[in-house]
């Protein structure tokens, strides 16, 4: 029988993998994918708790998270395009002009 715990475990696993992607990948596009995975991990927790508590509030909050993820992806991808136009690369290690 699948209970809430299994869903929370899947969320924790996905969040950890997303965090590892953000830590270890070097190009900005992959880092953005890791952020999307972490948002998805939060979403599965929202939906699982919503189901377990019998309400729909968690699902509505998950919809808001999806909307925020879409807006964030649009702006971040515009920034990546701009980064490529300015530096000729999407390597986040190269974008250190503020570091001197």
């Amino acid at each position: 029988m699948i209970t809430l715990q299994e869903y929370l475990s899947v969320g924790a696993l996905l969040f950890t993998v997303g965090l590892l992607i953000v830590l270890f990948r070097q190009n900005a596009i992959s880092i953005l994918m890791g952020i999307e995975l972490m948002l998805n991990a939060a979403n599965i927790n929202f939906v699982a708790f919503s189901n377990a508590l019998g309400g729909l509030t968690g699902q509505v909050l998950a919809i808001f998270v999806v909307v925020a993820a879409a807006a964030e992806a649009a702006v971040a991808i515009a920034i990546i395009v701009l980064l490529y136009q300015n530096l000729g690369t999407v390597d986040v290690e190269k974008a250190r002009n503020l570091n001197g």
Binding site: I2, T3, L4, E6, N51, A52, G54
Partner: peptide
């Protein structure tokens, strides 16, 4: 989970 919930 300490919620006495209906199973998912």
């Amino acid at each position: 989970v300490s919620i006495p919930a209906p199973a998912a």
